[in-house]
């Protein structure tokens, strides 16, 4: 019982962070058909900058986080600009975003070193959940922040004008153009929102765990896994898939051991793909 509860709480935190990360990746793909290999840059850069601002300028954690997310958004805009003229060329987009991600990874490696860094949490302390099951408060806060952000995003997409336009463009770009929607603006908005989400995910992750340069590519694996499972371009699909993967991940770690967690996660995904190639919620291309 207590084990199940533990898997539930830890898995929800993991899934929430995955969801913030992967839903942005999926949104960008949905709107522009860009496979953004530089999505992990937004995730890592915000976490690194928060740590840097706190350490070098003694900024408090909350202001530092806002700055970090701001820089993540800037990076997102930069990636948008970088891919603007080669967007039609799938291979080139992969190349450019991947090369940019590796460039930033090297930069982080040279300026911060290969060792992982940790961030001071928003809240210190431990919360007793049940009997001896204690959980760091920051992990519970991360769950709350992730869920609140995802709900806000859902509201944004289904209720606001920009959100509806994002939805329209990702469903049928030609029809959206005919309706007079400025596709370019929608794309920019999508990049900015997605980058901010990745930035938030990075900060939450670095508070619970740690951040290191190789994370830039590592998080892409999770994002890939999520979008394959949830279906490319489907926002709700990626959110559901994120939590599923979060639980699989934590449950495997708990039962078989950490070395199996990624192996099992990846094998599960390949298996699902063999049975249902378009993912759980995917539409046929």
């Amino acid at each position: 019982m207590i084990e199940l509860l533990e898997i539930f709480v830890f898995g929800t935190a993991m899934g929430g962070i995955f969801a913030l990360l992967a839903s942005g990746f999926s949104l960008i793909f949905g709107v522009s058909r860009i496979l953004n290999f530089a999505h992990g840059v937004c995730f890592s850069i915000s976490a690194y900058l928060v740590i840097y601002f706190i350490k070098e300028f003694s900024v408090d954690i909350f202001s530092a986080s806002i700055l970090g997310i701001f820089f993540a958004v800037l990076v997102g805009f930069f990636v948008y600009a970088l891919t603007k003229y080669i967007r039609h060329n799938v291979v080139m987009v992969i190349i450019v975003t991947l090369a940019f991600a590796l460039l930033v990874e090297q930069f982080l490696l040279l300026s911060f070193g290969n060792r992982g860094l940790t961030m001071p949490p928003f809240v210190e302390g431990i919360q007793v959940i049940y009997e001896n099951l204690r959980i760091a408060k920051v992990r519970l806060l991360a769950i709350a922040i992730a869920i609140a952000t995802l709900l806000a995003l859902e509201f944004f997409i289904s209720r606001t004008i920009i959100g509806k336009r994002i939805n329209a463009v990702s469903q049928d770009i030609e029809a959206a153009k005919l309706l007079g929607i400025n596709v370019e603006k929608v794309l920019i908005a999508t990049f900015l929102i997605s980058s901010a989400l990745a930035g938030i995910a990075g900060i939450l992750y670095a508070q619970i765990f740690n951040i290191y340069p190789a994370m830039i590519l590592r998080v892409l694996i999770y994002a890939f896994a999520v979008v394959i499972l949830g279906g490319l371009g489907s926002f709700r699909g990626s959110v559901v898939a994120s939590f599923i993967i979060g639980y699989i991940f934590v449950a495997t770690m708990k039962t078989l051991g950490a070395q199996w967690s990624e192996f099992v996660m990846l094998i599960t995904i390949v298996a699902i793909l063999a049975v249902r190639p378009t993912g759980l919620f995917g539409v046929k291309e």
């Binding site: 793909f29 496979l35 992969i94 694996i221 890939f224 896994a225 979008v227 394959i228 490319l232 990846l266 995904i269 390949v270 793909l273 190639p277 378009t278 291309e285």
Partner: peptide
């Protein structure tokens, strides 16, 4: 499968 799935699967 057509489209992006081949790329994503081979990536992992």
């Amino acid at each position: 499968l057509k489209g992006y799935y081949f790329s994503l699967v081979t990536a992992i």
